[in-house]
Simulated scan of single mutants.
Amino acid sequence: MNKEIRVVAKLAIQQEHINQVIEVFKVLVNKTRKEFGCLQYDLHQEVHDPATLIFFEKWGTMDDLNKHLKTAHFIACFKEVGSMVEHNETRILEKI
């Protein structure tokens, strides 16, 4: 049985690139929400630390998430902003 997958990805962005990264991530969010199996894909910014961005994601299955990670728009996004991200901590969770 395939179980629903949730992802929480916390990224620390270089202070001088916050706005640029947010704009790139907005494009990623819009494209990702159209993917098969994407149930939720939201970007948040910490109130007291604007350089911290957090994605909350919900995927129908792990296979759906794996397909997302191989899409051209996901790869292009992180190729563009990768050097502006100081740290990335991602948790993949299975709904039980």
Rank of each mutant, 00 (worst) to 15 (best):
G82H: 01
Y41I: 04
K67G: 02
N2F: 14
K67D: 07
C38M: 08
K67R: 14
D49V: 01
E57H: 05
L69Q: 12
F25W: 09
K34I: 03
G37L: 03
G60H: 09
V85R: 12
A51T: 04
S83H: 07
V85N: 12
K70R: 14
E4L: 13
E89W: 03
E94Y: 09
R33F: 00
L39E: 11
K31Q: 10
Q14R: 09
M1Q: 13
N30V: 09
L93E: 12
L28T: 11
L28G: 11
W59P: 02
V7P: 00
L69M: 14
V24M: 09
V85A: 10
K3P: 14
H87K: 13
F56D: 01
E57Q: 07
L65A: 08
H68P: 05
T52K: 07
S83C: 11
R33V: 01
L43F: 07
C38Q: 11
I75N: 08
A51W: 09
F78Q: 10
V47Q: 08
V21K: 03
F74V: 04
E4D: 12
V27S: 10
I13Y: 03
D63F: 04
V8F: 12
I5P: 14
P50N: 10
I75V: 13
I13W: 01
L28S: 08
T52F: 05
D49Y: 00
E86D: 02
H17G: 02
T71L: 11
H17M: 12
P50Q: 06
N30G: 08
L65Y: 14
V81D: 15
E80R: 01
K3N: 15
K58H: 06
V8G: 05
N19P: 02
I54M: 10
I13L: 13
N30W: 01
C38D: 07
V27T: 15
T52C: 04
V21A: 10
Y41R: 09
E35M: 09
H73V: 08
F36N: 15
S83R: 02
K34P: 00
L11R: 06
A9P: 02
K34S: 04
K79E: 14
D64Y: 12
K67P: 01
K95P: 05
V24D: 09
L11Y: 06
I22C: 03
